[in-house]
Design a protein around this nucleic acid. Sequence first.
DNA 1: TTGAAAGCGCTAACAT
DNA 2: ATGTTAGCGCTTTCAA
Lengths: 337, 337
Amino acid sequence: MKPLSIKDIAKKANVSITTVSFILNGKAEKMRISQDMITKVENIIKELGFRPNQVARSLRTGNTKTIGLIVEDISNPFFASIARLIEDKAYRHGYKIIYSSTENNIDKAKGLIRMFKARQVDGYIIAPMLGMEEDIRGLIKDRTPVVVFDRHLPGLEVSTVLVNNIEGTTMATESLIRQGKKNIAFVTVDVEADEIKDRYSGYVKALKANKIKPNDKICKLIPFANSADETTAELVTFFTENPEIDAVLFATNYLAVRGLFAFKELNKQISDDFKVIAYDDHDIFKLHSPSISAVYQPIEDIADQVITLILKGLSTVDTFEEPELKQIVLSSTLIER
Amino acid sequence: MKPLSIKDIAKKANVSITTVSFILNGKAEKMRISQDMITKVENIIKELGFRPNQVARSLRTGNTKTIGLIVEDISNPFFASIARLIEDKAYRHGYKIIYSSTENNIDKAKGLIRMFKARQVDGYIIAPMLGMEEDIRGLIKDRTPVVVFDRHLPGLEVSTVLVNNIEGTTMATESLIRQGKKNIAFVTVDVEADEIKDRYSGYVKALKANKIKPNDKICKLIPFANSADETTAELVTFFTENPEIDAVLFATNYLAVRGLFAFKELNKQISDDFKVIAYDDHDIFKLHSPSISAVYQPIEDIADQVITLILKGLSTVDTFEEPELKQIVLSSTLIER
DNA sequence: TTGAAAGCGCTAACAT
DNA sequence: ATGTTAGCGCTTTCAA
């Protein structure tokens, strides 16, 4: 059975499709359509359960009321939580989200942007990876609203929502120093992103401020391409070879989880003599015995800011105003456990 | 700058838009367009970076190459993982996913279906909630492919991918009995879903098979609407009041996590004298000291089956074949730790 | 082997 | 205050 069209409603109501369209789009008032007519048509619409074909509407108006969301991996709890919040807020404004994971694959990422373009999404929310600069610049040049979050691409002028990574690891490192730790290890990943580098900078900054000389030997760089097990194995070796370490700061929650697996394997107890802090929180850290301190990224805030920026961009897209670019940097919190 | 259209390509190539369209859609051969023409047009398309407007295409052909994904909460790791796998597989077949979370709110769920309908999605993948029966039936009547997973709605004839819940909890309970446990508690949630009830049935079945009388006193029903903290508090009380319990089977991973928090609060050690098994695995269970056994649901299999079913539905939608309904029940695995 | 033209369902400028 | 109609970009039938 073919779905209803505006024609069917018009016929049923004995009016033209224009009248129906105006009523559908809330322009009845402006067009001074009689109240009687309005209620009559509205009743028929409700009675028949008619919903205008959004595809036709999109073709005509040029906007699809759809936002493309591109992240590295939607199943990562950080992105999944943000995706949920963004979807919820977008929904209330009549927008839907199409998402895709880049899987840290630049070709897939580029393909996604082209695919989203072909689908005429109205705006983009992107947790970008290195190599997407040109593509994002292209979107901006087409006056498509873009908001970037989580990661920042050097030299790219775009609205951005980030957390202050330097601040986060500085706080964490200082807390460890205050607890008398002398050999604080730093475990990070070899991803070429400023955020990751900033986390390292924050760590070094706190050490220097406290006259501790950073020691490369207890800074471990884990290849991004590692499997979970490989990472655990590397960490087992690392901690075995460096028994002087009395505290560890992990640059991502994922690495910290692997670290916990490594400690388990090594039978290494976390205690006042061996402290661990993770960057980015996780349920596991609360529940672990003993529980693990973490730098918490304000997920709800991030989602709020992202959606606010993109909605503003969307609403000014057909005005002549230059879209204003905003760089928002949120603070993270050290949760001491 | 306006995006390119098929017209621009046609003009540039000095051919009609028909020719371009045929080439775009791989119908050039069938139409016996000359190889020269084909390469010439293809080059222009590549050179100008033209991508056909998917919205216009959708309006014309009636399909949007989009699948609607409706789950309770996309940020739940179970759904997030499945979403990621589904998206990935759909992508390879040229489909995109629009998702939404029902938040266990039937009004939102119904709204989502109507919204997806208005957007002409080609098919639906739904982890349904009670109350959606009529809406799903409506989709099927319109000959829209639907695949339901995770939960089954009684009396609804639709392709379904489930795991065998009875089997899972039976295995888990039997394992506990083999370990000599006499007072095995069962903690579940008051959700009116067959899956949840089946988990209870499996537990009872194993008890009876081993001549143990089920004891209501050590079966705890947690309200779904509880906050996390409320659940923890209820579990603290429950385990305090029933010290004879020597093992617990949790009906969901979420409940088990709350249980772990409760044990932590109670300073109750998990050991050979007090065993815990969770239905549905979680990283936390691997990492916990001691680690926690779990019934593992085959996420990858579920995603595979779901996508296979929906793609089959999508490909037969405009044939005259009756869409064949398939009920797939996957086995879960007990991971003993 | 290629082109002209209708039409998918809707919006909105223009006409009445 | 309501109706007529062009056209959004594309696919596909029919004609040449």
